[in-house]
């Protein structure tokens, strides 16, 4: 079952990522990125990270991608044109990235000591509660300060987004930051 689900959603992930590259219109790229993020959420679920799977769907596939599609539609972004820069990028970039991927694949496939993931395995031994219990224990006790600092970061990001996107003095450029939280 795990194998089937893994191949299904890993294939969906890769297909979405390749489609992101092949599409020339940004809205199609944004939609295929949503496919990638949602299938990644399922893969997180397979690896026993329920909280992250839900957070991935809400934060990434929800908030961030809504923001992306909103900006694509707001700016009325059209098809991209092929230029000298993209040809040079393709000519130099593709071999370099192929080499990078080959090296990574060789290292990863020969890595020893990695376990096989099976469904239903928790983060720790099952006696101390569910994954979510353990996660919230650590997040809200040991790592409370970083968590609070993150909320300050989000607040600053909202203010920065509003300040940056606002047209000079006359009218506000939309509430980009408010879509986040």
């Amino acid at each position: 079952m795990h194998l089937i689900l893994f191949f299904l959603f890993a294939g969906l992930c890769l297909a979405g990522a390749i489609n992101l590259l092949l599409q020339t219109h940004p809205i199609n790229s944004a939609l295929s990125l949503i496919v990638v993020m949602t299938s990644l959420a399922v893969l997180y679920l397979l690896l026993g990270a329920e909280f992250l799977a839900i957070a991935q769907i809400i934060v990434y596939a929800g908030a961030v991608m809504v923001l992306f599609t909103f900006v694509v539609m707001l700016l009325n972004a059209g098809r991209e044109e092929r230029t000298l820069g993209s040809r040079a990028g393709a000519r130099v970039g593709f071999p370099a990235v192929a080499v990078l991927l080959a090296v990574l694949a060789t290292v990863l496939l020969h890595a020893q000591g990695l376990t096989a993931a099976h469904l239903g395995a928790g983060l720790t031994d099952a006696k101390s509660g569910t994954n979510l219990d353990i996660l919230s224990q650590v997040l809200f006790h040991e790592l409370l300060l970083p968590f609070e600092v993150t909320s300050v970061l989000i607040l600053i990001a909202i203010l920065g987004a509003v300040a940056l996107a606002r047209a000079d003095g006359s009218k506000t450029g939309g509430a980009e930051g408010t879509a986040e939280k």
Binding site: V59, A63, L67, L153, I154, A157, V162, E176
Partner: peptide
Amino acid sequence: MVAAAEAAVGLA
């Protein structure tokens, strides 16, 4: 969280 903040500022 950082990516969400980054997306908001980057798109602005």
